[in-house]
Design a protein around this nucleic acid. Structure first.
Lengths: 146, 146
DNA sequence: ATTAATGCAAATTCTTTGCACTAAA
DNA sequence: TTTAGTGCAAAGAATTTGCATTAAT
């Protein structure tokens, strides 16, 4: 799967929603694709787009998160990052060492939630899960440098 | 189990750490115990303690979270609450309807994390999980009112 | 032409800091 | 006494709002 959807696909989704395809919206998408990292902060986008107003950047980020084009990532220190969403429900594996973020969809948190409902009567509507640790690449790197 | 530990127990823990048992610290603990809700915001504490400085309240909350006397709860809307901690690793069930927060420790997220490591090579150091939904009490309430 | 979307600057919210002062040990 | 802890007011950060202006359809 590509790192992010084609511009055309996102434009289509904007149009489907009856939203305008504006220059600032296109440039936020471009700026998000431009970074070396697979993640970006509102600040990153802001500094890559000095010509776009701060408010527009925040409004656009919010819109694109609602549209599930981007997803929010909560870092261990409480800071917020954004990332292209693979769409649909998923979680993040955030590497302490290199900061890389991977998606994680395979594990079934749903089972856990169902079990929960059975035991406590609490019905889960949704949940937020972020996992912090060390990615495979950083493990190999550490092994090599020893 | 009681809603929160005895003052004496917390005082003991402060002393064990070589920290002073000050009037503001005691009043933050009292204010946290005073609320009708099982949760409280920094603002709640602030308004219950007009005589204590804002900075002291934040410093004290941070200290008590580090000491695992309180834990932080991340609400669905991104706001932060505090709550007496049952100590040790646990998660929260947050009711959309009544806002009540329950702890949840029984389910084994660890298994999920181990499975994850096996499949992706990512080693989890920690994770953050909040569950949003509807508590048993609100379910009954809804059933009755029909 | 219409009106959604933007840019700016000011306002908000939540939290932290610097520093002289106070009180716990 | 000593120095950890406090209060105040000011500084920050991260975001949001109001409103006149601009640009996409």
């Amino acid at each position: 799967m590509a790192k992010h959807p084609s511009l055309a696909a996102v434009v289509q989704r904007l149009e489907d929603r009856g939203l305008r395809v504006t220059a600032p919206r296109l440039s936020v998408l471009a700026a998000a694709a431009a970074g070396a990292e697979d993640q970006f902060s509102a600040e990153d986008i802001e500094s890559r787009l000095p010509q776009v107003g701060r408010a527009t950047i925040f409004r656009t980020l919010k819109l694109l998160v609602e549209m599930d084009v981007f997803c929010r990532v909560l870092l261990d220190d409480g800071n917020l990052r954004y990332r292209w969403s693979r769409r649909g429900h998923h979680h993040h594996l955030i590497c302490d060492s290199c900061g890389a973020i991977e998606d994680f969809t395979g594990c079934d948190v749903t089972t856990l939630m169902q079990d929960l409902a059975r035991r406590t009567g609490f019905t889960a509507r949704g949940h937020w899960l972020e996992v912090y640790g060390r990615c495979a690449a950083c493990h190999s790197r550490a092994a090599v440098s020893q």
